[in-house]
Computed example of a mutant assay.
Amino acid sequence: MSEQVIGANSQVIFHFSIKLADGSAADSTKVHNKPAKLVMGDGSLTENFEKCLFGLAAGDSKSFELAPQDAFGMPNPDNIYYVERSKFSVDVPPQVGAIIAFTQPDGTELPGVIRDVAGDSVTVDFNHPLAGQRITFEVDILEVRN
């Protein structure tokens, strides 16, 4: 049996860690020992993330650095909203740095980071928290199925 390597439609089970430029961990599947599972091309990873995985096989470990535009993109000013303070509940007052889930018209929730509170206006940033960050993506491939 030949070793299976990651290709266009492979199902991959892997551990990953995402580290910021300062070396701090932003996310890791190792914390709870629950590996990630994906099918290449299913849209759960950006095209640039997937390109880094092509050709790897079970047992491989790799680390690669991604520029912001290749990882979570650059912050989009259209994703910054100004919300009236009255829209926040008394139980959860808006505080700078807090992440609050906002319910969308279709019922899904979208997390937003409170960037500023000025008078009755609250600035909420709906960009991905890692947008604009240069990151290091470390992977340990556990299983590959083609």
Rank of each mutant, 00 (worst) to 15 (best):
G23Q: 06
L53D: 00
Q11I: 09
D91S: 10
G73V: 00
S61F: 15
H128C: 02
L20E: 09
N79K: 10
N9T: 14
C52S: 13
G59I: 02
A118Y: 15
Y81K: 10
N146I: 05
I18V: 13
P129W: 00
P77A: 05
E65R: 13
G59E: 05
H128I: 01
A58T: 05
Q104Y: 08
R85P: 07
N33T: 07
K62F: 12
I114Q: 04
N48M: 13
P68A: 04
E65P: 01
S63F: 07
D106R: 11
S2D: 13
E3W: 15
S10V: 01
F64D: 00
V117F: 07
S86F: 12
A101Y: 15
L130R: 02
D140Y: 09
A101I: 08
S121G: 13
I114M: 04
D78Q: 09
M74E: 11
L110G: 02
V139W: 01
P77K: 08
F16G: 01
D27K: 12
Q4V: 09
F126G: 00
I6C: 03
N33H: 12
P75D: 04
V5W: 06
R134M: 09
P129L: 02
V39Y: 11
I100V: 12
R115C: 00
A25H: 12
E143S: 07
L66M: 06
D140S: 06
P68D: 02
A57Y: 08
K62N: 12
F64Q: 01
S44A: 08
I18W: 08
S17K: 07
S2V: 12
Q95G: 11
H32Q: 12
G73C: 01
F49S: 01
G55Y: 07
L45N: 04
L45M: 09
F137C: 02
R134D: 06
M74Q: 07
H128N: 05
V5S: 04
A26E: 03
S44T: 15
M40P: 00
K19I: 10
F88A: 00
V90K: 14
D125N: 03
G59V: 06
S89R: 11
T46A: 11
L53M: 13
G59M: 07
L130H: 05
Y82F: 14
A21W: 15
D120H: 12
G55L: 05
P111D: 04
R115K: 10
N9M: 09
P129A: 03
L130A: 02
I100G: 02
H128F: 06
A101G: 09
A131M: 03
G112Q: 04
E50R: 11
V144C: 04
V83M: 11
E47S: 11
Y82P: 02
F14E: 02
E3F: 13
L45R: 03
F126E: 00
G55Q: 10
V92H: 15
K62Q: 08
